[in-house]
Nucleic acid binder design. Structure first.
Lengths: 106, 106
DNA sequence: TATAAGCGCAACCGTTTGGTTTCGCAAATT
DNA sequence: AATTTGCGAAACCAAACGGTTGCGCTTATA
């Protein structure tokens, strides 16, 4: 069982759910209404998201509200940082660098 | 066939490959040497990465050098932006906001 | 020219995935 | 008290995934 954040955001439905519950907590039924899928399917996706701690649930009577744990998204951002560095500085003329390296090898 | 960037970076081996070839182009064999996996397996991962245009290949005699297309990584960063906004401003006291919304609903 | 090396591709196989259907439980409604 | 509603969990299924093995092609080396 993989169950990490990168695997969690790999599914487009899951990404849509994440975006949907970013600003306000929602119930599985309410979420499912936004897509062409069943409540059970959404429920399964939510379970995965909860398991890797990207989403938290809060019982409210017989309803369960799901919302995003924004801080957890930082872990993806953290991995992205190494690449952002590359296009934010002038080192993004990567092709030149690579050519140089290859020539040295020969 | 899913074949989008998010699905591409879902696999840990693929993420490692990406990091590995960020700074210098490498051949499948050279990449495989860095992991406990075969050349063919790496080759399959590379094909997926090439298909979603995250990686480019360059023939050099009988060897093929693979390197990252850094700009493509921006697409992930672009999606992340909506969340980065949340923890960069003081709106990251999201819990309070959510509670308010829920109370209004009742 | 024969052999070895580097590679992509297709076939195959066990496992995982995403979805549906069915069930049971607890909270609301009648 | 009986029924409806919102939900999670389990069983099931077709499709996709990640890996291996074997093949054939091309380029380098003997």
């Amino acid at each position: 069982m993989r169950r990490d954040i990168f695997q969690a955001i790999a599914d487009p439905t899951r990404r849509a759910i994440i975006t949907l519950i970013t600003l306000q907590a929602m119930t599985p039924n309410a979420i499912a209404d936004n897509f062409h899928t069943s409540r059970q399917s959404v429920s399964k996706h939510l379970r995965i998201l909860v398991e890797c701690e990207l989403v938290k649930q809060e019982q409210q009577g017989r309803e369960i509200y799901y919302s995003l744990k924004v801080e957890k998204m930082k872990e993806i951002d953290k991995w992205m940082a190494q690449f952002r560095k590359l296009w934010e500085t002038r080192f993004n003329q990567l092709d030149n660098v690579l050519s140089t390296i290859k020539k040295q090898k020969k």
